[in-house]
Design a protein around this nucleic acid. Structure first.
Length: 273
DNA sequence: AGCACCACCTGTGGGC
DNA sequence: TGCCCACAGGTGGTGC
């Protein structure tokens, strides 16, 4: 579900709400949601720790504590919901409740159960256990020069596959990748080696623009995404190609859907070459 | 190195 | 109307 913009929207909302709060005893409705440490250790270790700041790397939300780091990945259908009164809004897919000592709470629900939480004691442990194969955050930690350098090392890759590769750079998902390639005028099947003068720069700019806009519009709610107050995103109204098979592109050509890198891929055969 | 597949889950929507 | 299959904002593993 959530890509970089959706996670960033959640981060911005939660940071002022959670900073300074102290965790009480968690309730694990589905213990397998905990990736590390073992569920019972997690439950014993979290109470008493306080939230310092909230960060993000790609699609990972990083809740820095006075001791250790609580990391969350929402995968396809994970949702975080903050409740001032501590009450969860729906029970069906509730996997985890993290109450605070002031009786407010952070709830985690996840229909498809793919999402995970990790509690690590140090930055090094987080790196080793969770972020080992994750590249730099594509919005905050990758300048144009570095992006172009990294791209040059991946001559044989298809653009769509590369942008989706979190080891290359972290944050792009299926929706924003299709939108980025549309804005760049690049066919998703093209390979890096075939890019012409100026096209790589165009892609970098499109990544930046589309992610920024996604954040400004509160993320994309195509199906399940909700922010931490339960509200829908707005960026779906701005999508040029994603989810618009057979609808007309602004150039008048019907948008096509194919499969690239194993994912449903939308593009305009006229605007993207 | 890159890619195609499968697995992990549950729900929904299109086609027949 | 109802059933079945394909597919869904992600990622990790396998094997070619």
């Amino acid at each position: 579900m959530p890509e970089l913009p959706e996670v960033e929207v959640i981060r911005r909302e939660l940071e002022p709400l959670l900073t300074g709060k102290e965790f009480a005893g968690p309730v694990l409705h589905m213990p397998s949601t905990i990736g590390h440490p073992r569920p019972e250790e997690f439950s014993a270790a979290l109470p008493g720790r306080r939230v310092k700041t909230i960060g993000r790397r790609g699609k990972y939300l990083l809740i820095y504590l006075d001791r250790g780091i609580l990391t969350i990945h929402l995968r396809m259908t994970g949702n975080l919901f903050y409740a001032e009164d501590g009450k969860a809004r729906e029970e069906r897919f509730l996997r985890l409740s993290l109450p605070f000592t002031d009786d407010s709470a952070l709830h985690y629900s996840d229909m498809r159960r793919f999402g995970r939480l990790w509690l690590t004691e140090t930055e090094e442990e987080l790196q080793e256990l969770v972020l080992k194969k994750i590249g730099p955050d594509i919005l905050n930690d990758l300048c144009r020069e570095d992006f172009l350098d990294l791209l040059a090392k991946k001559e044989r890759s298809r653009l769509k596959a590369l942008l989706l590769d979190q080891g290359f750079a972290a944050g792009m998902g299926n929706i924003y990748t299709d939108e980025c390639l549309f804005r760049s005028g690049i066919d998703p099947n093209r390979r890096v080696a075939d890019l012409k003068e100026g096209e790589a720069e165009k892609i970098y700019q499109a990544i930046f623009d589309v992610l920024k806009e996604g954040i400004e519009y509160g993320g994309t709610t195509f199906r399940d995404y909700r922010n931490s107050s339960g509200a829908l995103g707005d960026f779906q109204s701005r999508l040029a190609v994603y989810g618009r098979k057979d609808e007309l592109c602004r150039c008048g050509t019907p948008i096509k859907k194919t499969k690239v890198a194993g994912r449903g891929t939308y593009f305009c055969p006229c605007c993207q070459k």
